[in-house]
Nucleic acid binder design. Structure first.
Lengths: 161, 161
DNA sequence: CCTGAAATTGTTGTCCT
DNA sequence: AGGACAACAATTTCAGG
């Protein structure tokens, strides 16, 4: 599916301002409200816009510390991987989990209040997950930046194509 | 600032459905539209809700591969750090960057189309950033899961408190 | 694909409890 | 605090170019 410059503007605006009114969005991209609305619906339908979310302040919620943890399992049997994956997803402090190439089997991003809180999560939760053999924790000192925004290319892959 | 169960419901709903209408949100949390609207405004004001965004599909945009890169700089002089930080933020493929404790100085998350595209970014962009001495790339094979949603505690830290 | 108009729905202030 | 109501605004559909 090919995107024209108006689609790209729409997506760029919505990535930063997910709650723009359709009327305001239409004005910013130079379209009538109805035309703009149709485009947005089409982009949602096509799966280019996945969803809309409110981002809460990590600081306000008392979740200021990010820790990356490399997880090595006992083995790479399929059941071991599946059991770990199902269990790790239920841990609310784990924000993200990737199956990795290289040394460790998984990389998980953990968000906690402080170092003490991480100690608890490490001891009581992560080390108890099924199949876990080794955990290597890397503490972040400071977030330099974080983006939720991607550049929008002029061609996208659409559901059912 | 203390949150009651209605505030928690509001924040939980908005984290998953950032574009709910106020009317629909009010119904879900069991409040009148005007009361709900007041609460949402207060939560925005207090900085608990940071912002609203549309999440685009990485797959649709052709950015399917995540690579984590550990960056070691020539030294830890302040100017070296600052120069690197300013430069890395301008790289659109870099979605996130943390100053780290431990072996490497920084950890960056890079989003690219495929392995070839990463080769380009590695060679033409990352290795050219100021102060970079070593890059250790870890490829993800598959994303197990990713959350944007945090559990909402009943007490939050408010701007100007 | 667009615009413009019409019907529906949502927003948001004010006042009252 | 929350609710009801009312004026205004936005959304959404549809006819017609």
């Amino acid at each position: 599916m090919r995107l024209d410059s108006v689609d790209i503007s729409i997506l760029t605006e919505l990535q930063d301002h997910g709650r723009l009114t359709n009327a305001e969005l239409a004005e910013r991209v130079g379209l009538s409200a109805s035309a703009c609305h149709r485009r947005v619906k089409a982009l949602e339908q096509a799966g280019v816009i996945d969803r809309y979310v409110a981002i809460l302040s990590e600081k306000a919620l008392g979740r200021g510390i990010t820790v990356y943890v490399q997880v090595t399992l006992d083995n790479q049997k399929r059941e071991t991987l599946v059991a770990f994956e199902e269990a790790v997803e239920t841990v609310p402090e784990v924000m993200e989990c990737y199956l990795m190439s290289g040394d460790a089997d998984y990389l998980v991003r953990v968000l906690v209040r402080d170092a003490n809180d991480y100690e608890r999560v490490h001891r009581e939760v992560l080390s108890g997950l099924p199949g876990v053999a080794r955990l290597v924790s890397s503490f972040t000192i400071r977030r330099v930046f974080s983006r939720t925004t991607m550049p929008v290319p002029d061609e996208v892959v659409v559901k059912g194509d």
